[in-house]
């Protein structure tokens, strides 16, 4: 066995005997995973219950006859269908725009030398993690003076570019070999062609991660849409409609409706997460761990 190990690199991890400590840890792991999954399971199960079942004490786990009544009823209270479309418009346009602007700026920061490059990048990093609320008032004033208040454009336009996206793209594009880019240039490709034809395909995992990040963030965003839409409820994204449903509902306690709305609101980010999670893991590793 030792001879074999010397011949080729050992990829097998060493084995350990199961001890009481590892058994305890495994148990803890399973318990934690159950806690992680439980609220989501509860949400979906509750959305399938009858109003009587949602109010039962002690609570019941499984609805006796699962039905979608809550989903049809919730549409009568708030216009969730319209809100769903609004959220989709907001999340999709911002995501596509962020990908394009981040790729362009990230490419310039990674592969060009220009004046103030490092200073500009430092400013981006320093302001990347500021609580958005701190700049809410001046931001609202600027957006308002540009005629962006009260409509979806106001939600979208200030979010067409984002510092984290630029940072992520720069980190990944820096790893693309210069020879690859030079070769394309010698073949007569324009810089736009180089970026979207050569560089972008070689950082696809990072693009997938940024897609997931941007979509989830803007699908879920609450404070800025609420501020800029100025009570124009036709334009509300689903998260705001849901919170209005919650406040209507405090007295009536028709929990099933709220959970049906929440399940609808959760669906797109969860589906995207399932599709893109592999890339997401890879990029977190590459951007975070290696630094």
């Amino acid at each position: 066995m030792t001879a074999l190990a010397l011949d080729r690199p050992r990829l097998e991890r060493p084995q350990f005997r199961a001890t009481p400590a590892t058994a305890l840890l495994t148990l803890l792991l399973i318990l934690a995973a159950a806690i992680a999954a439980f609220p989501l399971a509860w949400m979906i199960l509750t959305s399938l219950k009858t109003p009587q079942e949602t109010m039962q004490v002690p609570p019941i786990w499984l609805p006796a006859s699962p039905n979608l009544d809550a989903y049809t009823q919730v549409a009568d209270v708030v216009n969730l269908g319209r809100s769903f479309v609004n959220s989709a418009i907001i999340a999709l346009t911002t995501t596509v725009a962020i990908i394009v602007t981040s790729l362009m700026a990230g490419y310039a920061f990674a592969k060009y030398r220009f004046r103030y490059r490092n200073a500009l990048f430092a400013v981006l990093i320093a302001t990347m993690f500021l609580p958005p609320i701190v700049t809410l008032i001046p931001l609202y004033r600027i957006a308002g003076s540009l005629g962006l208040d009260g409509n979806l454009a106001g939600v979208i336009v200030p979010n067409l570019a984002n510092a984290f996206g630029i940072f992520l793209m720069r980190q990944f594009i820096a790893g693309v070999p210069d020879e690859l880019i030079e070769a394309a240039r010698l073949d007569g490709a324009s810089e736009i062609r180089v970026l979207f034809g050569i560089v972008a395909p070689s950082v696809l995992p990072a693009i997938a991660a940024l897609t997931l990040f941007a979509f989830v963030y803007h699908w879920n965003s609450y404070l800025w849409p609420l501020t800029i839409l100025q009570g124009n409820s036709d334009q509300y994204p689903i998260v705001i409609s849901l919170s209005r449903l919650l406040s209507y509902n405090r007295g009536a306690m028709n929990t099933g409706l709220v959970m049906a709305g929440a399940t609808m609101a959760v669906l797109p980010p969860v589906l995207l997460f399932i599709i893109l999670q592999r890339f997401f893991v890879d990029s977190i590793v590459a951007s975070g761990v290696k630094g």
Partner: peptide
């Protein structure tokens, strides 16, 4: 040209309000 779109949006809606 590559930095400009991002810089314009970020400058106007993040850096300036900050």
């Amino acid at each position: 040209l590559f930095v400009l779109p991002a810089l314009l949006v970020y400058g106007l809606f993040v850096l300036y309000p900050l």
